[in-house]
Design a protein around this nucleic acid. Structure first.
Lengths: 235, 235
DNA sequence: AGCTCATGTGAAGGGCTCTTACATGAGCGT
DNA sequence: ACGCTCATGTAAGAGCCCTTCACATGAGCT
């Protein structure tokens, strides 16, 4: 009956050796499957092959595990955004758009982390480490906005970079939350979320006075009235 | 010991009379307090003064109750947005901005409905009634975008209204989700969410070629380079 | 070799979800 | 007014989960 259990016990001995990590991984899998509410402490323990009480040696309770996942998620998120930003190479606008795509890519490729971060009900502002991790991620966007704001064409009022960052973050987050996940639980879209975000950001930047053609060719003068960021003008 | 229970029973008799509604209200209260994951079928039953099994006469399971709340939420949401839009009176831009504020106001004043709608993990696309209710709400935004798109100045390419609606919806939702709730569980902001959204939408509209001064005065020619939607230009 | 303490186990209390068999009484037809 | 019927509520219970507590194990240090 308890064949598997004894089997596993035999394989690993009384002590697991790396239970904390194993629990985190198990939880990630479960969250990806069934959402942050569906994951169960006992289930994670089962997956790791330990008794239901074992996890309590590593996490005060279920919420603390969730909180740890969210924190790790923010750290990975920061790394992903930082890598996409690449300190503004090859040019600010290109890199900026890449950050937007990275935002959506993260939500899509790491749904478990993403939902732990934003949809699990974990009180971000209660946990300093979580708060810090979250802010560090946001600071990537903010830094990018800062650099972009510095590029405002002459004669145009320079927008507050913080505000820009918040706008971009909000739009990215909104698209990710409403349409951005692979699981069928979200609404369908007549286009890819990435396209939607890219168009939105381009329009937004244009509204701030930037002349954004197709992002790559930042130098050439634009004929920006006949076609828009959403593609060729309808006839 | 079971004084209260008997008391209540005496007050209402064996049959509650309006249990379904009472359960919905109780659930709403619980969700507002503890989030969609924190609410419990048994708790709602207790609040209504009935046994834990009684709710099953009115809802297949816990999820169906949640789903009902979400659906009702979308209906109220639609009403709120429709009222704000007021068919574009007194002018399209003013009404459009009012819709944005209504979006945030709903998220703030009805956090229980809002989280049931967007954060409870209810699969919107699985339930036709929910889907329809959700689409009807979105259609208000879409109709408003349609009207706005029709106003594009001559010489400017007309943007797809659906895309506009999706952008506005996403930004609104992003702001609401990240900063828009009264409960402390969200991030702090150096300004009101409403201001943030209003500025974002104005910038966005300007990016589409609209000349949006302060929204009220849609006729006068703009001197739109010295100051921006975010307030007076910094010195 | 012996100690110690972090790590894991078993058992148990309490709570929740959901099912099944039974109880109650409101509404209806006669 | 009488009695039926069926929607609505109850009691009891199986199964699962969270969490705690006393106890077991063995890895690492002396």
């Amino acid at each position: 009956m308890s064949w598997r259990k004894e089997q596993r016990r035999a394989e690993r001995g009384y002590h697991h050796g790396n239970l904390k990590e194993a629990l985190l991984q198990a939880a990630l899998g479960l969250i990806a499957e069934k959402g942050p509410g569906g994951f169960t402490f006992a289930d994670a323990a089962r997956m790791a092959g330990v008794s239901p009480a074992a996890p309590y040696r590593h996490f005060r309770d279920r919420d603390e595990l969730l909180s740890n996942i969210a924190q790790r998620g923010f750290e990975l998120f920061e790394q992903a955004l930082a890598k996409a930003w690449d300190d503004g190479r090859p040019d600010t606008v290109t890199a900026f758009m890449r950050v937007g795509r990275a935002y959506l890519a993260f939500a899509r490729s790491e749904p478990a982390y993403y939902s732990a971060m934003f949809e699990s009900g974990v009180p971000v502002d209660q946990n300093p480490l979580l708060m810090t991790a979250s802010e560090r991620a946001f600071n990537i966007i903010r830094a990018a906005a800062e650099r972009l704001a510095a590029l405002t064409p002459p004669g145009v009022a320079r927008p507050p970079a913080l505000m820009m960052a918040l706008h971009i973050w909000s739009m990215s987050h909104g698209i990710a939350a409403l349409f951005g996940r692979g699981d069928g639980a979200r609404r369908k879209l007549p286009m890819e979320p990435e396209e939607l975000l890219e168009a939105g950001v381009l329009i937004y930047l244009r509204g701030l006075g930037f002349s954004t053609e197709t992002a790559a060719e930042t130098e050439k003068p634009a004929e920006a009235t006949r076609s828009g960021p959403w593609g060729p003008a309808p006839k």
